[in-house]
């Protein structure tokens, strides 16, 4: 990991709200993070923790209404993406920030050929004509390891397998050499062997092309394999952030610790039941004024009900939003 490099993406105090029939839902609260050049940032959290919504908020992909990015700054190349007009944002989307989504089966348009869908961003952002775009599309398909690329451009998405379609999605995301790639659970819908192939592909492409990647997942195993740094989200906020080895070795937030506990071990007692975190994640009708994890937290104490802890540094490049020091087994000094 290139240490101390310039951040390409700097998110500060992001807040996203959904208007629903039952009132407002505060899906993302005070989220701040940065992404350095060439870095792979893993974002973990259970469903509904605000991982995807955070990333979609950055670049205006949330349907509005019901979603509304209420506050925050997203600095990309010295400009605030949230203040940009729709047209300039479109020029960045797909060109300098690429996306890969969860379900490759539905993410491609079924009635257009893969070639058409690959050419689109090339012609839109790079000013290529059809022939140039076609040549580049062949290169891209070869880059993501699709054999017989030239022929396959004429094929429709349904003629590809799930793993191949995800490769196509990655090719589309990489079409214009983006500086940032946001991958929203790209391997969740794939079976394990294909998942491993896609992970290998991303690792390889990352070194070849040198872009920064945000990898959203709820699979800690995947994170351990590829990430440089990990951000753990819970209840719409970042609860812990650390370099990957540090996080796995020395989790400082009880939620992270509990998450790590849930990973089943291959060795050991067979009769052992899978560990779970009891309870449900919260649905936030308002910006929380207390720790959102307190109901499920084994070490919660009085202060957790009165204040929502901010992230505080707990080690080298490591911060956590918790009043309790897990290592010492006592509350931190305020």
């Amino acid at each position: 990991m290139p240490d101390g490099a310039q951040p390409v993406l700097d998110v500060r105090d992001l807040n996203t709200v959904f208007q629903t029939r039952g009132g407002e839902v505060h899906a993302v609260n005070h989220v701040s993070f940065d992404l350095k050049k060439g870095e792979l940032l893993g974002v973990v959290g259970e469903s509904g923790s605000g991982k995807s919504v955070t990333m979609m908020s950055l670049i205006g992909l949330l349907p509005s209404p019901p979603a509304e990015v209420r506050r925050g700054e997203v600095l990309f190349d010295g400009r605030d993406l949230l203040k940009m007009d729709a047209d300039s944002l479109r020029d960045i989307r797909g060109a300098r920030i690429g996306f890969v989504f969860q379900d490759p089966m539905t993410s491609l348009n079924p009635v257009f050929t893969v070639g058409f869908q690959l050419r689109e961003p090339l012609m839109r952002h790079m000013g290529m004509n059809k022939r140039q775009a076609n040549a580049r599309a062949v290169e891209l398909l070869e880059l993501v390891g699709i054999p017989d690329a030239k022929q396959r451009l004429k094929d429709y998405p349904h003629q590809f397998s799930g793993g191949m379609r995800q490769r196509v999605m990655i090719a589309i995301a990489l079409a214009c050499d983006p500086e940032v790639l946001i991958a929203d659970e790209p391997t969740t819908a794939l079976d394990v062997t294909i998942q491993a192939q896609i992970l290998e592909l991303v690792k390889e492409l990352r070194h070849k092309l040198g872009m920064a990647i945000v990898w959203i997942t709820h699979d800690l195993g995947v994170i351990a394999g590829i990430a440089d740094r990990v951000m753990v989200m819970y209840g719409g906020q970042v609860v812990e952030q650390a370099p990957v080895r540090e996080l796995f070795k020395n989790p400082q937030h009880p939620y992270t610790a509990a998450l790590l506990e849930t990973i089943p071990h291959v060795r050991g007692d067979r009769a052992e039941r899978l560990k779970v975190i009891e309870g449900q994640p919260p649905i936030l009708g308002a910006i929380p004024t207390a720790c959102p994890f307190r109901h499920r937290c084994p070490v919660a104490f009085d202060r957790c009900k009165q204040e929502n802890p901010a992230r505080m540094p707990v080690g080298d490049g490591h911060d956590a939003a918790c009043f309790y020091d897990l290592a010492k087994g006592e509350p931190r000094d305020a």
Partner: peptide
């Protein structure tokens, strides 16, 4: 509401 519409938007295609 299909996913491919989001993909098209993510590619930066005009509305």
């Amino acid at each position: 509401n299909q996913d491919y519409v989001r993909t098209a938007r993510a590619k930066g295609m005009r509305e």
